[in-house]
Computed example of a mutant assay.
Amino acid sequence: MAQSKCTRTGLALYNLISAVGWAFIFYQVVRTYPMVGQPAFFDVTKNIVTFVQCGALIEIINSLFGIVRSPIVTTAAQVLSRLLVVIGIFQLLPETPAAHSISYITLLLAWSTTEVVRYLFYFFTLCRKDGPPKVLLLLRYNLFWVLYPTGVASELSIIYSALPIAERVYGPLYKYVLVGSMLTYIPGLPMLFMHMVAQRRKVMKSLKENPAKKTN
């Protein structure tokens, strides 16, 4: 029982810290970007974005050891695809044109908004007896209609833009790695999107049947 309580406390702390990290990135987009513009905004934020996103490696570990119920394959695929962008492009190929364009802004807006809602949702699920506030529940299962396609389109735009630079700097093999990562979106995008649609259907049905209920 003590270990279970300790685990829940650790998970709650991780989710809260992650929410704060992504909230800071969101703040940078709405506050700093209008003042400095691109490409300066990319230069001053790429490292903190990489650092915050790398924190999600903890989620793979949690899934691997059964600390959370998330499937390891799905969790690893989602985290590693983002790490490919932040490390494989932002750090290794910082001259990528799309990283200096509006695609970077839309990417950060989609990622940060999604993650602030998601991590706060998990935090309150762990810490609040009645679960997360209803507003978080509605945001969690409705924002994805816009944010998921926006994030994916931005990721693909940045990866595609990096292809010629990847080949020039690291050779054709690295270019093929990036192309292969883009191809994984073909089966992955509809699968993950339909999973969210199915989850939303269940949650909305639960709320309709029991309006007082906060969580699924």
Score class of each variant (00 low, 15 high):
Ile186His: 06
Ile186Pro: 07
Ile186Tyr: 04
Ile186Gln: 07
Ile186Arg: 08
Ile186Trp: 04
Pro187Leu: 01
Pro187Asp: 06
Pro187Cys: 02
Pro187Phe: 03
Gly188Phe: 01
Gly188Thr: 01
Gly188Val: 02
Gly188Ile: 02
Gly188Trp: 01
Gly188Lys: 00
Gly188Met: 02
Gly188Leu: 01
Leu189Phe: 12
Leu189Asn: 01
Leu189Gln: 01
Leu189Met: 03
Leu189Asp: 00
Leu189Trp: 05
Leu189His: 02
Leu189Glu: 00
Pro190Arg: 03
Pro190Gln: 06
Pro190His: 05
Pro190Ala: 06
Met191Phe: 13
Met191Asp: 02
Met191Gln: 14
Met191Tyr: 14
Met191Ser: 09
Met191Ile: 05
Leu192Thr: 06
Leu192Glu: 01
Leu192Ser: 06
Leu192Gln: 10
Leu192Arg: 03
Leu192Val: 07
Leu192Lys: 04
Leu192Cys: 03
Phe193Gln: 06
Phe193Trp: 14
Phe193Ile: 08
Phe193His: 11
Phe193Val: 07
Phe193Ser: 09
Phe193Ala: 09
Phe193Asn: 06
Phe193Asp: 04
Met194Val: 15
Met194Cys: 12
Met194His: 14
His195Ile: 04
His195Val: 05
His195Gln: 14
His195Phe: 10
His195Cys: 06
His195Glu: 08
Met196Cys: 08
Met196Gly: 05
Met196His: 08
Met196Glu: 03
Val197Glu: 05
Val197Phe: 11
Val197Asp: 03
Val197Ile: 13
Ala198Asn: 11
Ala198Thr: 11
Ala198Lys: 13
Gln199Trp: 05
Gln199Lys: 10
Gln199Val: 08
Arg200Lys: 11
Arg201Ser: 13
Arg201Asp: 14
Arg201Leu: 12
Arg201Val: 06
Lys202Cys: 13
Lys202Met: 14
Lys202Pro: 11
Lys202Leu: 15
Lys202Gln: 14
Lys202His: 13
Val203Ala: 15
Val203Cys: 11
Val203Arg: 08
Val203Asp: 07
Val203Asn: 07
Val203Leu: 12
Met204Gln: 08
Met204Ile: 06
Met204Pro: 01
Lys205Val: 02
Lys205Tyr: 02
Lys205Asp: 06
Lys205Asn: 04
Ser206Glu: 07
Ser206Val: 09
Ser206Thr: 09
Ser206Gln: 09
Ser206Arg: 05
Ser206Ile: 09
Ser206Lys: 07
Ser206Met: 09
Leu207Gly: 02
Leu207Ala: 04
Leu207Lys: 07
Leu207Tyr: 03
Leu207Thr: 03
Leu207Glu: 02
Leu207Phe: 07
Leu207His: 07
Lys208Leu: 09
Lys208Thr: 07
Lys208Met: 09
Lys208Glu: 10
Lys208Ala: 13
Lys208Tyr: 08
Glu209His: 00
Glu209Ser: 02
Glu209Cys: 00
Glu209Tyr: 00
Glu209Asn: 03
Glu209Leu: 01
Glu209Gln: 03
Asn210Asp: 15
Asn210Leu: 00
Asn210Val: 03
Asn210Lys: 00
Asn210Pro: 04
Pro211Ser: 07
Ala212Trp: 00
Ala212Pro: 00
Ala212Met: 02
Lys213Gln: 13
Lys213Leu: 14
Lys213Met: 13
Lys214Arg: 15
Lys214Met: 15
Lys214Ala: 14
Lys214His: 15
Lys214Phe: 14
Thr215Leu: 12
Thr215Ile: 12
Thr215Gly: 07
Thr215Met: 12
Thr215Tyr: 11
Thr215Pro: 02
Thr215Gln: 13
Asn216Tyr: 09
Asn216Thr: 08
Asn216His: 10
